[in-house]
Amino acid sequence: MSEENENKPNLDVPEHLEYSDEHVWVDASTEPAMVGITEYAADQLGELVYIDLPEVGTEVQAGDEVAELESSKAVTPLVTPVAGVIRYVNSEAADDPGIVTGDPYGEGWIFKIELEDDEPGLLSSEEYANIVAE
């Protein structure tokens, strides 16, 4: 194995999801769409200690800060890559923020949103994997 490959993160990037360059994933195959942070973001944040979730019913635009993730390292805003109306929030993640970092693509979703735009400008899994590998 070359040194170059050893320095690249070996992260899970599920192919069925779409991604933002802000390390947020969207699963538009569900109704409403699910949104969460990527494994890369979870690794960068470290252990989450608090999540400030958005209000159900809030209408958001792509690029809006909708939640706040507080870890032992920093407080980081969650920027939504899609527009729509927030229909559900993951209250289990608010009660136990560790599930977000422990299972970012499963039980650790942040919110579900009724998409306003059917064609959000998101990255494929391959495009996102290339960004985090740099």
Rank of each mutant, 00 (worst) to 15 (best):
A74N: 11
H23T: 00
A42G: 12
L17S: 06
A28Y: 08
E18K: 15
V89T: 15
E15W: 04
L48C: 05
E59H: 13
V24G: 02
V82M: 07
F111P: 11
M34D: 13
E119N: 15
Y88M: 13
V13H: 03
D21V: 05
T101R: 03
A33Q: 08
E59C: 06
E107D: 14
E107W: 00
T58I: 12
G46F: 00
L17M: 10
Y40W: 08
P14L: 09
D95G: 07
D21P: 04
T58K: 15
I110F: 06
S91N: 14
N90K: 05
T76P: 01
G46Y: 00
G46T: 00
Y105M: 01
E114L: 08
D27W: 08
T76A: 10
V35F: 00
E59Y: 12
E59R: 14
G46E: 00
V26L: 03
E107Q: 12
L78N: 10
D43I: 05
I37T: 09
D64W: 06
E31H: 13
S71F: 01
G63M: 01
A94M: 08
E31I: 14
E39P: 07
P14V: 08
H16Q: 14
Q44M: 14
P104L: 01
H16M: 13
W25K: 00
D52N: 11
E22M: 15
V85W: 12
T30R: 12
K73T: 10
A41P: 01
I37H: 05
P54Y: 07
W109G: 03
L78W: 10
L69Y: 05
R87I: 13
A94F: 02
I51Y: 01
T38W: 00
A42W: 04
P77R: 03
D103I: 04
A28L: 12
T80W: 07
V24D: 02
V60C: 10
G63V: 02
A94I: 01
V82F: 02
D96M: 05
W109F: 07
S20W: 00
T58M: 14
E107F: 06
A94V: 11
